[in-house]
Write a protein that binds this DNA or RNA. Structure first.
Length: 441
DNA sequence: TCTGGGGTCCTCATCCCG
DNA sequence: TCTGCGGGATGAGGACCC
């Protein structure tokens, strides 16, 4: 999908069509998740700090991501892909590999191109958004083709032409070559894909190590036999938060770690999994990041067990100077919880856990009350989120501040920009609403 | 107003075991 | 019994991707 989050927002909000739109975290430490093509013209791109984006494109619309909506659209697209082949490998919400031969949807260049064209039309019809298609004989080349196809295009790379096509390009187009590897290669005088191939496998392995070097050399020769793998089980589950202001208070740090552990277990259980290794992540005030992990005797999905492990790990970490991010993760996932000797004891502790949790929630609420500067009312009105007004109907939050919230009343089906009105943040006629489908049913 | 969140994979060091 | 060594498990960190 092309500039997926931003395109979805433009489809949902007619007043933003053709305008610079930036989706990402809006807090003081937010970064850009996706910029619309209009915003990219100002130099805004993903992973850029929001402050920098605002300086480059002060008039762009800045919105918070709405993952619910993106997931729904993603499901529609994935369903179209699965109709082509049982072998669909999603890479993210907006990207996937499809093995067209396995689905007998295509068997040569002509049939593949026909399938690609039809798919793009279907995506547009079903979701209202544009997607790009890259067709090739391997995953790597198909991925590069799809990048070239963006936005709103289709690129087919004929088998046999891959090497010549890749040769003059920067090493950075190869998947797996980021800033660090790019620099490494540049220092060795290797700038293009052709130069990787000329350097030879031994030299690549010497520079980058066995796995990475060998892999990269194969890629440069357009050798990529990796199969399309459907439904891969995830290998870890984690949650993390970056705080608007560094946390110095050790007690508060402990409390945050407990909350993160609970959220992590919630997600773990939601996925019907359990895990054996608990990982604590701490990013300090100076952006240095460290992780500490502990492997348990068996997999668990018990919040008490994960919380205790996370707390133990935290005790081994120096947080003087402050922390900007905390995270808790679980890896070594299994589909079951081991019924070991301690299962009984764990069940007995469950009651205690619930009490602990209540205590933690109470503590947190108390902390919020103690800090009224948080302005909780405006938390409800996040820029870009859907609302409904008893009199004016469906709309979205354009902005909020100093006790007011500004709403634009329009839907994905409005023919032009909607009207704007401002309300008090506690207006009883205004309430949060669910996202509307981008295409009218 | 410098730097998100959720993942994957690889490497290297260390420890333990046979 | 001492020593060498390979290999798995574990833990930490880094690069990369969307």
């Amino acid at each position: 999908m092309d500039a997926f989050y931003a395109s979805a927002e433009q489809a949902a909000k007619p007043s933003l069509r053709g305008k610079a739109v930036v989706v990402g975290g809006l807090g003081p430490r937010g970064v850009v998740a996706t910029a619309s093509y209009e915003a990219r013209r100002f130099g805004v791109h993903s992973a850029m700090p929001m402050g920098q984006a605002r300086r480059l494109a002060p008039h762009a619309a800045y919105l918070v991501p709405r993952f619910r909506l993106y997931r729904e659209v993603s499901e529609q697209v994935m369903a179209l892909l699965r109709a082509l082949s049982p072998l669909v490998e999603p890479l993210s919400l907006d990207e996937a590999f499809v093995d067209l031969e396995a689905g007998e949807a295509a068997w040569d260049e002509v049939s593949a191109e026909a399938v690609g064209l039809r798919l793009r039309a279907d995506i547009r019809r079903v979701t209202g958004l544009t997607g790009s298609v890259g067709l090739a004989a391997s995953k790597m080349v198909a991925k590069i083709a799809s990048e070239e196809a963006k936005p709103d295009g289709l690129v087919l790379i004929r088998p046999g032409t891959e090497r010549a096509l890749l040769a003059p390009k920067s090493v950075r187009i190869l998947p797996g070559v980021g800033p660090a590897t790019g620099d490494h290669l540049r220092r060795a005088g290797i700038l293009t894909v052709a130069e990787i191939a000329e350097a030879g496998e031994d030299e690549l392995v010497r520079l980058l190590g066995k796995a990475h070097g060998g892999h990269l050399y194969a890629m440069a020769l357009a050798h990529d036999e990796r199969p399309v793998v459907a439904e891969r089980d995830s290998k870890s589950v984690s949650v993390e938060d970056t705080y608007d202001v560094d946390i110095h208070d050790r007690v508060r740090v402990r409390m945050e770690v407990q909350r993160l552990a609970d959220r992590c277990v919630e997600r773990l259980r939601g996925a019907g999994r359990s895990g054996r290794t608990v990982v604590l992540k701490v990013r300090r005030y100076d952006f240095s990041t460290l992780t500490r992990s502990e492997t348990l005797r068996g997999p668990t999905d018990d919040p008490g067990v994960v919380r205790e492990a996370a707390a133990r790990l935290l005790e081994a970490v120096d947080t003087t100077g402050g922390v900007r991010l905390l995270g808790v993760g679980v890896s070594g996932l299994a589909d079951y919880t081991q019924e070991d000797l301690f299962a009984q004891a764990a069940a007995a502790e469950e009651a205690e856990d619930v009490e602990d949790r209540d205590a933690a929630v109470a503590e947190e609420e108390a902390a919020e009350e103690a800090a009224p500067a948080e302005q909780p009312a405006e938390r409800r009105w996040m820029a870009g989120h859907d609302v409904r007004h008893a009199e004016f109907g469906a709309g979205w939050v354009q902005g909020s501040g100093v006790g007011r919230v500004t709403v634009r009343f329009e839907t994905p089906y409005s023919t032009g920009p909607g009207r704007v009105r401002t309300f008090a943040v506690d207006d009883p006629e205004l309430e949060p609403a669910d996202p509307l489908p981008l295409v009218e049913l």
